[in-house]
Design a protein around this nucleic acid. Structure first.
Lengths: 256, 256
DNA sequence: CCACAGCATTCCACAATGCGGAACAGGTCC
DNA sequence: GGACCTGTTCCGCATTGTGGAATGCTGTGG
């Protein structure tokens, strides 16, 4: 069976870029290809629009074309719509609001939220960004982020949002390690007084963490006394199910 | 500037497939490449997972890898999260529920819905599918669909959901033509008694219609007497804005 | 039933194409 | 200035992909 080498290599490069923006040398190293070859491939990919060159001189990332292509392939196949049913299920289980977030620089961008039906409930953060170090989703995302972005994050300053915010570099670093070990993160009134949250990672088929599921509620009832472990387990399980669907079948938006 | 020919060609093939599944000969014709070359390229793309071969012997479509790549590239960059703010805006303008749907075979799959705050409101269809010929989104999507799927749709049987459902082949066909001319579709109590809706197309940068924005409400107040034209205009405008963002900048989920 | 069309896949001689080491061109740091 | 990063360009070589023609497959219809 004959296979086209250059195309295979081009996709190696793309998959490499899926793990975050990178420069030519870095890609060359990771893919074990000569720099000149990578440069040439990147050149064509840029021209095609499959890859974009960040103006900050030098780093490449996936481009419009990739998004466009996959949007056409299956418009319904994406994080938000995949995760929605699982968020709803989670809300039913624990009777508190649940949400979905992704990393945006050193912040978390909230993609979606499903509310329970309490009189007192958390406002909808959909479409807004919050410093990663004060929310559970942020900590989870950073804990599993590639080493370079994690390192960059850890070097940055940490603003205190409440008296409980952890702003000490070493403590934050230590916390990330623990989160990675545990598989989920708790935050108690660190972003806002009276607000607690748990979060767990969503991992894509390539093994990268690309988002987080979280649950949150007012601290006087969330988690219910003694139920922290079970709530955490529910969140982890929901995130797990989302990851599974990201990997697998069951696509709603495909043809026929 | 040197560019890698085989990679360029591979992406020609992919872009071609973005317009719907096709066989080798068809792709060869559309891309003006020799069949043998297309076959070879498809071979490698399949092996990589960028393309999948439908078991119905022979037709190819975009595969997991493409979705995976773009999901990693920008998890927040997708129809639902792009459209959400515009749906919200639309709901504020017209004070009725609005939603988002894509084609799934001969049905419409509802991806999202935003409700107004009336006592009487339409139930949330998110996650469900409805026959395309009885809802405005469905008619819009079919009106702008590629000729083959449109033809296939028009040949199929049309079930009557209410007394108002249009089930005559010729009438449906004629209706699609009018919709394409007008740029939007109205449906009056054809899916459910007492329920009206308007829809307009979302088009991707390649010019293909990949989804529809709709608004709907109980027929006793929707549209407000004499306001059908202005409601339609709002919906069209909302769909237009979503299309613009699909094409352009302003991505929330990207790094830094 | 065989001929024929339309499809996809395989073959293979040919050379165009992409390859990759080395040389080059900017930067930044010490 | 020189050492050491980047990324891009050059250019001879041969690997690699090319594409017309041949092959195999399935369904149609005379």
């Amino acid at each position: 069976m004959s296979t086209v080498q250059s195309v295979e290599r081009a996709f190696s490069v793309l998959q490499c870029l899926a793990g975050g923006p990178a420069g030519v040398s870095e890609i060359a190293e990771r893919t074990a290809l000569p720099k000149s070859t990578v440069s040439r491939l990147l050149g064509t990919l840029v021209e095609l629009g499959a890859v974009e060159q960040s103006e900050a001189l030098g780093v490449y990332g996936l481009g419009e074309l990739m998004i466009e292509l996959s949007a056409s392939a299956s418009p319904g196949r994406n994080l938000v719509s995949l995760a929605r049913p699982h968020l709803v299920e989670l809300v039913e289980q624990i009777d508190e609001a649940a949400g979905l977030g992704v990393l945006d620089g050193h912040k978390v961008y909230y993609l979606d939220q499903v509310d329970g039906d309490h009189e007192v409930q958390v406002r909808d953060w959909t479409g807004e960004s919050v410093d990663a170090h004060v929310v559970s989703s942020g900590l989870v995302l950073m804990a599993y982020a590639p080493n370079d972005v994690r390192a960059d994050f850890l070097s940055g300053p940490f603003e205190a949002w409440t008296d409980n915010s952890v702003t000490d570099r070493a403590l934050v670093a230590h916390r990330l390690d623990e989160i990675k070990r545990a598989g989920f993160a708790w935050v108690y009134e660190e972003m806002s007084e009276g607000l607690n949250s748990v979060a767990a990672p969503i991992v894509n088929p390539a093994g990268m963490v690309i988002g987080a599921v979280h649950a949150h509620g007012p601290s006087y009832r969330f988690p219910a006394p003694g139920a922290a472990a079970s709530v955490a387990a529910s969140v982890v399980e929901a995130a797990q199910r989302v990851s599974d669907r990201l990997a697998g079948r069951h696509r709603p938006g495909s043809s026929s």
